[in-house]
Design a binder for these strands. Structure first.
Length: 591
RNA sequence: CGGGGUGUAGCGCAGCUUGGUUAGCGCGCCUGCUUUGGGAGCAGGAGGCCGGGAGUUCGAAUCUCCCCACCCCGACCA
């Protein structure tokens, strides 16, 4: 039993000034966590109760799925990560350090290498597979910008599992088992989630899906179809490719003077205002223009290569999408100095005429998939103050390939069914990957197959952000008064408030009740503070967010029909329950 | 790393523009009395390197420069 009179807790009346997102504000205000380091939080007693509850539920669901728990160090030598090339690919996000002898270590961001090596250590036969092992462990990532309290920290708790199978079918089965286990897990945590297809990024591998809790504070942007069940992270959206058009009858491309039109909007205004250039039937729009954006691609080895991207003029380049396409290279802006190195690039008037590896600039030129043969564009003529109209893809220009780098807009066509998609934000609470043989091969993990031949197992990896889930649950359930936990993760089942002064019958009745509830197996938080006013106790109870609040007050003094008030935190409904049936009433509530 | 913002008591803030008493308010904290169904009242009290450093000045929380930290927005990820 936690007693408020001596609990290591301080609730705050005001929002902390350094907290912006609601879960962060309330977790600090209600005394669950404190910031103790840049991107690092300490758990206070109530917070640690909730954390352990979430962790326990994750563990129970993993065990129920037949996965086995292990535990690895976070402090690891770098060699296994060098073998898979992740030491380099992970880049500055990896915490690197040295021991007293100068040997290099890292703080693990995930553990694929170590799990593969341990399987190599223990297993030799195909008959040992399939295998799924997992751990719940502290991970370290040197995030550029920790933010939003527990949602993005540099040290965080993650459940990571790894599957080992002999073939694709086995991997698919392990993947599906995790997918199903996660769906159950998040139902139990009362955490709404959307499963979206995703890119595997630095992890490598093929198939990958994210579980997003659809909440506005989420950092991930995803799209979902308004009519079918398609959903995808914007990074993973494949643009539906329109049909190519025949060239016959299409107007000839022609260069026109378009003075002072370095931006799409000035260009559109100009061509609509010029009687010779106007569209015969309608106004030109930004979607009629072809925008060519040049960026630098910085490869992990330090080399920098320019890249031109051609997209519809009404869209921006989505840096997340572009970055995901060039992973592990990084996207950097194309500077004024860079423009000087390529005099053929006329800023504001860049067109396909100079772009592409075989044209004057020699810059690789990748097109949005919508720019198919036969589409006609208004685009830069590679001279200042000139644009070209009716420039036709496939006839007048070609790219070096296509790229998914244009921003996705509300109302774009669904890649699956063609109707409209909508854009939403979500918190990434889990991510599942089919890795294939990348790790096993790099680390020489082989088993003997039924013909005594070496076989490289295929792996999957599956992560759940445990501490992040806690924040997401808080975010999904909180209200204007405070936190509002689902019972299973709440720091207690019952929050008992004593509404009476020292020595009053309320005190002894509440003490007896708390003890009886504990004996009955319920977890109790007892507000036995004598100096706190009742108003403070009510406010604190709502802030702390235990699902059931019990007030032992004036009702107990009714000699004929003594009652105790039971209040549901979420609905606010109150009920007076007869004193002699209160324990069984509450036990029933909590089961 | 770029852009924006904020650093004053445990927490939330004012003061800074226009330099000048002993740096102020609310909450919290300590002592005493009263109070107890929605953040109590009265009385008394403690608590500050005004983020750090350098400068300007007779004098700096206030003006100048440099640094640091934190928050928000952009490029990473559970």
């Amino acid at each position: 039993m936690h007693r408020m009179s001596n609990l290591f807790l301080r609730t705050l009346r005001d929002d902390p000034s350094d907290a912006e997102v609601p879960s962060h504000r309330l977790l600090v205000r209600a005394g669950y966590i404190r910031r103790s380091a840049p991107g690092g939080f300490s758990w206070l007693p109530l917070g640690y109760e909730v954390f352990r509850n979430v962790e326990r539920i994750v563990r129970e669901e993993m065990n129920a799925a037949g996965f086995q728990e292990v535990h690895f160090p976070a402090l690891l030598p770098i060699e296994p990560y060098q073998a898979t090339n992740r030491y380099e690919e992970y880049g500055p996000n990896l915490f690197r350090l040295q021991d007293r002898h100068g040997a290099d270590f890292l703080l693990a961001p995930t553990h694929e290498e170590m799990f593969a090596l341990t399987v190599k250590d223990l297993f030799s036969s195909y008959r040992d597979l399939p295998l799924v092992i997992y751990q719940i462990q502290t991970k370290f990532r040197d995030e550029v910008r920790p933010r939003a309290g527990l949602l993005r920290t540099r040290e965080f708790s993650m459940k990571d599992s790894y599957s080992f199978d002999l073939n694709e079918a086995g991997l698919q089965a392990s993947y599906d088992a995790h997918r199903a286990a996660y769906i159950k897990l998040f139902e139990r945590l009362e955490l709404p989630c959307v499963i979206v297809s995703a890119l595997s990024g630095a992890m490598g591998g093929s198939e990958s899906e994210e579980f997003l809790a659809p909440l506005p504070v989420g950092e991930d942007t995803f799209i979902r179809c308004t009519s079918c069940d398609f959903a995808a992270n914007v990074e993973a959206v494949h643009t539906p490719v329109p049909e190519a058009q025949a060239f016959t009858g299409l107007p000839v491309a022609a260069v026109h003077d378009t003075p002072k039109t370095p931006t799409i909007s000035t260009l559109v205004d100009y061509v609509n205002a010029d009687s010779a250039l106007r569209h015969p039937d309608r106004d030109w729009t930004a979607a009629d223009t072809l925008k060519n954006v040049v960026v630098n691609i910085k490869h992990p080895d330090g080399t920098v290569e320019p890249l031109a991207v051609g997209i519809e003029g009404h869209r921006e380049v989505d840096m997340k999408r572009l970055g995901a396409q060039v992973e592990p290279a990084q996207v950097e802006p194309f500077s004024e100095d860079d423009f000087k190195k390529y005099p053929s690039l006329k800023k504001g008037y860049i067109g396909p005429g100079v772009l592409g590896t075989t044209n004057e600039s020699g810059i690789r030129y990748l097109l949005d998939p919508r720019i198919v043969d036969g589409t006609q564009w208004i685009t830069g003529a590679d001279n200042y103050n000139q644009h070209v109209l009716h420039l036709t893809a496939g006839r007048d220009f070609v790219g070096d390939g296509t790229i998914e780098a244009a921003e996705v807009l509300d109302g774009d066509n669904c890649p699956s069914c063609g109707s409209e998609v909508e854009i939403a934000r979500g918190i990434e609470i889990a991510h599942i990957f089919q890795l294939g043989t990348k790790y096993a091969a790099a680390l020489d993990l082989t088993l003997r197959d039924e013909n005594d031949q070496p076989v490289t197992p295929t792996m999957g990896s599956y992560g759940v952000g445990v501490s992040r889930c806690l924040a997401a649950i808080a975010e999904a359930t909180l209200d204007d008064s405070g936190l509002c936990w689902p019972r299973e993760v709440a720091p207690a089942d019952i929050h008992v408030i004593i509404a009476g002064k020292d020595g009053s019958p309320q005190v002894s009745a509440a003490e007896d009740l708390a003890t009886s509830l504990e004996v009955a197996g319920l977890r109790v938080l007892l507000d036995d503070r004598s100096k706190a006013s009742l108003g403070v106790k009510f406010k604190d109870a709502e802030l702390i967010g235990v699902p059931t609040i019990v007030v032992v007050g004036r009702g107990i003094a009714d000699e004929e029909n003594p009652t105790i008030e039971v209040k549901d935190r979420r609905s606010g409904e109150r009920q007076d329950i007869p004193h002699d049936s209160i324990v069984e009433h509450l036990v029933a509530l909590c089961s």
